[in-house]
Amino acid sequence: MAVAERLYARALFRAADEKQRVDAVLADLGAFAEAVASSPELAAFLANPQVDRSAKASVLGELAEGAEELVRNFLRLIAEKGRSGQIPAIHAELQALVDQAQGRVAVELTTAFELSDDEAAAIVKQIENASGRTVEATRKVDPELVGGLILQAGSLRVDASVRGRLERLRHELVTR
């Protein structure tokens, strides 16, 4: 994550926290970030440095009509500062800040085969006990793992898969 994105997300988080509107701001910015991510035309328009910043601010203001006031003002501000192409990244950083403040951690659990709900719940419970935080897990299946699992929480990655172990072993053999 770039420093600018982190700074903008922190500023928005503080403003939303002061007004006790964190959840509403996060939801509205998330919806907007999703719209940008799903529309290549909009993403290209916002990222284009040749488009006048005030034109971007005007378009963002119109698109954000009905959104939380903090979000509307924020979108205009980042457009004027030339950062409108970074909306999805700023949203991701804001999500991380909200999760941290609320004692949550988002984890992606990748396994070689589909886990039952009980198996997934047991793994999530172990992570919650170890971290002391509430875990929101998404599950993914990658048959190429052969067995085991990979946990991804932010920049932390724990690879306990058979494929990962084989790759580490291969690397050790090659470097000796």
Rank of each mutant, 00 (worst) to 15 (best):
A160P: 05
H171L: 15
R163E: 13
V174W: 12
Q152A: 08
V174A: 06
L166P: 05
A153F: 04
E167Q: 15
V135H: 00
S161A: 13
V141Q: 04
L169S: 13
L166F: 10
V141D: 00
S155V: 07
K140M: 04
D159W: 07
E172N: 15
G148S: 05
R163K: 15
T134M: 06
R170T: 01
S155F: 06
L166Y: 07
R165L: 13
A153Y: 02
V158I: 14
V146I: 15
S155T: 13
E136D: 08
T138P: 03
R170A: 07
E136Y: 05
V158H: 05
E172W: 09
L145M: 05
L169K: 13
T138G: 10
V135G: 01
V146S: 02
V158N: 08
D142E: 09
E167T: 11
G164S: 14
R170G: 05
S131C: 04
E167G: 11
V158E: 09
G132E: 09
R170C: 03
L145H: 01
R157Y: 04
R165N: 15
A137K: 00
K140R: 14
H171F: 12
S155R: 05
A137L: 02
L173P: 11
R168F: 06
V158R: 06
S131E: 07
R139G: 06
R170E: 03
G147K: 02
V162T: 11
V141R: 04
G132D: 07
L169C: 12
V146R: 05
D142T: 09
P143W: 10
R165K: 15
E172L: 14
I150E: 03
T138F: 00
Q152S: 08
R133C: 04
L169V: 13
E136P: 01
K140V: 10
G148K: 01
Q152D: 06
H171Q: 15
D159L: 08
G147M: 06
R163Y: 09
L156K: 08
V162L: 14
V135K: 01
H171T: 13
R170Y: 04
V174R: 04
S131L: 11
R157N: 11
E167D: 15
D142G: 00
L166K: 08
I150L: 05
S161K: 07
D142Y: 06
E144A: 09
S131Q: 08
V162I: 15
R170L: 01
E136I: 04
S161N: 08
G132W: 11
R139H: 05
L166S: 07
A160M: 11
Q152R: 14
S161G: 12
S131W: 12
L169P: 12
A153R: 06
V141W: 05
R139S: 05
R133Y: 12
H171K: 15
G148A: 06
V135R: 00
R133G: 03
G132T: 07
G147A: 14
T138D: 08
L149Q: 00
G147P: 03
T138K: 09
E167M: 14
G147E: 08
T134D: 08
E172V: 11
T138Y: 00
G154D: 02
G148L: 03
S131M: 10
A160T: 10
E136V: 07
A153W: 01
